[in-house]
């Protein structure tokens, strides 16, 4: 995969349109959304339920394809890639964190974190070493051999963040990562994402949580599939999020 220039945005979405068919009716989830996230930036996407936040994240991750518009991640036009190429892009350039049930229940925490590397053909010893380091970075070194059902919700979500970061991707996408966590655990996860941004990754966070938005450099508010407001100031961010 060609490396993106340092000044280029980590992700650039232009005029994204996505419609969903629900029975006989067609619902427009996104109606022309454009968004750019630069390396080292943490952007929070907020908005009411059904506003298109998760759809936007799915399009950026290459999990779904837009009906119109384009998505470029690390210089690669995601919407033009085949399904397998998009999967390969996710392994190497995109870290994903979801709200719950983030880990494969049959794999240990270590195996879950090493998963993107192993799927990409990284030698076992190297993958395990990097996964151990990622787990240690999120404070879970002692829980490496535990299965997900033996981890608390906060621990499982930190393991998911470790997995998202293990391949050092230029883009990290998180969909409601604190939605099912208590305040202390949520703060821990948000701090990790903030740290990832500080390390140079572009982080896009879809959230309902005002506290999560407070960690963002910039907030984008969606409503009815459109960007209705955006701000880059922390104070204004919190106000916008609330």
């Amino acid at each position: 995969m060609p490396a993106a220039p340092a000044t280029a945005p980590a992700v650039e979405a232009v005029d994204l349109v996505r419609r969903h068919r629900q029975g006989d009716t067609v619902v427009a989830a996104l109606r022309g959304v454009s968004l750019t996230v630069a390396p080292g930036e943490l952007v929070a996407v907020v908005g009411p339920s059904g506003s298109g936040k998760s759809t936007l994240l799915h399009l950026l991750a290459g999990v779904d394809l837009p009906d119109a518009g384009s998505v470029v991640v690390a210089g690669v036009a995601v919407h033009l890639l085949s399904e397998d190429a998009r999967a390969a892009l996710r392994r190497r350039a995109i870290g994903l964190v979801f709200q719950g049930c983030n880990l494969v229940p049959l794999l240990t925490a270590l195996e879950n974190v090493a998963l993107p590397l192993l799927l990409d053909g990284t030698p076992r010893s190297q993958a395990q070493a990097r996964a151990r380091a990622a787990l240690a970075a999120v404070g879970l070194a002692a829980r490496a051999q535990h299965l997900p059902d033996r981890l608390s919700g906060g621990e499982a979500q930190r393991a998911a963040v470790a997995r998202a970061l293990v391949a050092a991707p230029p883009l990290v996408l998180a969909d409601e990562p604190t939605g099912s966590l208590d305040a202390a655990s949520a703060d821990g996860v948000l701090a990790l994402l903030r740290g990832a941004a500080a390390g140079g990754a572009a982080v896009l966070l879809v959230t309902h949580d005002p506290r999560a938005a407070a960690y963002a450099d910039r907030i984008v508010r969606l409503a009815d599939g459109l960007v209705v407001a955006a701000t880059g100031e922390a104070g204004a961010c919190a106000a916008l999020a609330s």
């Binding site: 999990v63 399904e83 999967a87 190497r92 994903l96 494969v104 229940p105 998963l115 799927l119």
Partner: peptide, 15 residues
């Protein structure tokens, strides 16, 4: 759901 998670972290259709 598990398969979706695997695909989300990069498992290809062939895999």
């Amino acid at each position: 759901r598990v398969h979706a998670l695997l695909r989300a972290v990069g498992l290809t259709r062939r895999q």
